[in-house]
Design a protein around this nucleic acid. Structure first.
Length: 288
DNA sequence: ACGGCTCTATGAGTAGATTG
DNA sequence: CAATCTACTCATAGAGCCGT
């Protein structure tokens, strides 16, 4: 990848000279050749240059890719938007694209996508959200992949978070124990916190479903710790919702239901219909 | 004078050939 | 087969030129 020409474009738009942009970082001659695309500079130097342009690496890469998402971000975006709108045709298209690539990580993503397709297709036919209809081979493939991970990256934590409902419930504990070592490392990184929050939400949901209420309570505390900032109020609201489900499950029906309904209404007012429907499953289960 | 540029030199690292 | 040598690439700095 040669970033020079794009850096030059940004620098000129900002009215900065080469001297202002590169002095003390790389030599002027090298800066010129870098901008012409004749050679690249080390990531370390690139970060310093981007600092002079008031930009971080994330934003620069986004601009460099012509304001398009990275292949991974695009995959996550498509998977979640197609799943949320139950757009099975697009999910099939995504599955075909993933199947064409033959590396392990693409096979894991294809398995994840096929799980979604099967559950959504069955839901459309029966009206029941039942994850047992996924293929055993997909479940085994994802689970075996996750079990092998020693040091978790955010992408892998996100994969775990997004596939929790498809995995063996008893596989959750060791996997979560293993990845939670990374939690403190990502505490101050907003994207990391976001991914951990979503993972915790799905984990709590499963813990409640399987009646592991004390375990759910511990996880809810962790979710609250991670979503204390105002920007994460949405996750904090979901934590409150889970609190109310625990109240109901532990016998305080009146206050629990009132609180849970209030929060579901709040999510619906924010146009989060599918999330509210998903969360409402916990209330229905309790009332049956 | 300043910004942008070319040419050349240097040191570190490495792939491949040669030698003991 | 391991150690050494050689040729090459990469990332860099500096001297100096050109146009405004």
């Amino acid at each position: 990848m040669n970033f020079g020409p794009k850096i030059r474009e940004i620098r000129i738009k900002k009215g900065l000279s080469q001297k202002e942009t590169y002095s003390g970082i790389i030599s002027k001659s090298y800066a010129i050749e870098f901008e012409k695309g004749k050679h690249s500079i080390s990531a370390n130097f690139l970060i310093h240059v981007l600092e002079r342009l008031n930009m971080d690496m994330d934003e620069f890469l986004f601009i460099y890719m012509d304001y398009r998402l990275s292949p991974y971000s695009s995959y996550i975006y498509r998977l979640s938007s197609y799943s949320n709108t139950h757009n099975v045709d697009s999910l099939h298209q995504l599955y075909r694209e993933l199947s064409e690539k033959n590396t392990e990580i693409y096979r894991v993503r294809a398995a994840e996508t096929r799980c979604r397709i099967r559950v959504i297709e069955q839901f459309k036919m029966t009206g029941i959200w039942d994850t047992t209809c996924i293929l055993k081979e997909d479940q085994a493939f994802i689970q075996e992949y996750l079990v092998r991970i020693e040091t978790w990256t955010l992408q892998e934590i996100q994969l775990f978070g997004n596939t929790i409902e498809f995995l063996d419930f008893h596989a959750h504990f060791p996997l979560f124990k293993n990845l939670s070592k990374s939690l403190s490392l990502y505490m101050n990184y907003d994207r990391g916190r976001e991914i951990f929050c979503v993972m915790l939400i799905n984990l709590i949901s499963q813990a409640i479903k399987h009646q592991f209420l004390d375990y759910a309570e511990v996880l809810i505390q962790q979710l609250k710790l991670l979503s204390s900032d105002y920007k994460e109020f949405f996750h904090a609201a979901i934590a409150r919702y889970f609190d109310s489900i625990l109240l109901i499950k532990r016998g305080d029906h009146e206050q629990g239901y009132a609180e849970a309904e209030k929060l579901l209404l709040f999510f619906r007012e924010l146009n989060q219909q599918s999330l509210a429907d998903e969360l409402a499953v916990h209330i229905k289960k309790v009332s049956l």
